[in-house]
């Protein structure tokens, strides 16, 4: 089974990369974009026996740094 872990910066944490991407979008002539935040998507291929609790623990112990990041775990139907 595929699992997607979305890692994003918490609100209030400045995102220099997002700001640079935003700047580049505007530089390409696109308008109407008011903010850009860059995050990370991590895809795991796991056995069905892997529990939500175990996935949560993986995210907390390694995949996200909870000082600055939030995460969301999503199981993807095969």
């Amino acid at each position: 089974m595929k699992v997607r872990v979305f890692v994003s910066l918490k609100n209030g944490v400045l995102d220099p990369q997002g700001r640079a991407i935003h700047h580049a979008i505007e530089g390409l002539g696109f308008s109407g974009v008011s903010d850009v935040r860059a995050g990370r998507l991590i895809e795991l291929e796991v056995d069905d026996s892997v529990t939500d609790a175990a996935l949560d623990e993986m995210a907390q112990k390694l995949l996200a740094n909870q000082v600055i990041e939030n995460y969301r775990v999503e199981r993807v139907a095969a």
Partner: peptide
């Protein structure tokens, strides 16, 4: 140690 080290503000 507390906190985190993020990308430099000036990229």
């Amino acid at each position: 140690l507390p906190g985190a080290l993020m990308r430099n503000a000036g990229i």
